[in-house]
């Protein structure tokens, strides 16, 4: 926790400084002290102070435990990014069954019929609710759009 909190506090402080610097470029309105910069500038100062407080507080936190369980979550995030890329390319109706099969394999599902039922079921359900019932378009993908 300690290292993580210290990293977080630095991110907060850096972001606060960056926001503050950007607000300096904002135009001011005639006759008003509360222009476009007022709110974000004020918030960036508060944000910086909170970053400092978090840094000070972190010394009282316990030392970091190794985040061993994080690996699977990270892999899923990468798979999701691949999925989003596939959707932009192939559209939702093709990418979804593909990625669901990959997810199921990754999660070590053993029943073979799940590999057919879930991908087709979910894709069809979404198609039914979104496209047929509500008439909301589903992403088509660059190749077919």
């Amino acid at each position: 926790m300690k290292t993580a909190e210290q990293i977080a506090s630095f991110i907060v402080m850096i972001l606060a400084v960056a926001v503050y610097a950007m607000t300096l470029q904002f135009p001011s309105l005639e006759g008003f002290e509360t222009g476009p910069a007022f709110f974000p500038k004020m918030l960036s100062i508060v944000f910086f102070i909170l970053g400092v407080l978090l840094f000070l507080q972190s010394f009282r936190s316990s030392n970091d435990k190794l985040p061993e369980k994080m690996r699977d979550a990270l892999i899923i995030m990468v798979l999701m990014l691949v999925y989003l890329y596939l959707v932009t390319l192939l559209g939702f109706n093709i990418s979804t069954p593909i990625i669901l099969v990959i997810f199921l394999a990754f999660l070590k599902v053993r029943t073979w019929y799940s590999y057919i039922a879930l991908p087709i079921g979910v894709t069809f359900f979404v198609y039914l609710i979104f496209q047929v019932f509500l008439g909301v378009p589903i992403p088509e993908g660059a190749m077919f759009g």
Binding site: I76, M80, V87, T96, F103, V109, L118, V126, V136, I138
Partner: peptide, 27 residues
Amino acid sequence: KKYLTPTILVLCVIGSYALNNNFFDVW
């Protein structure tokens, strides 16, 4: 969870897209 979690992730994608038909929202 092995079935529910992937389904939820897919619904997150289509739900964010459907709001404005804008893939930016999905990112």
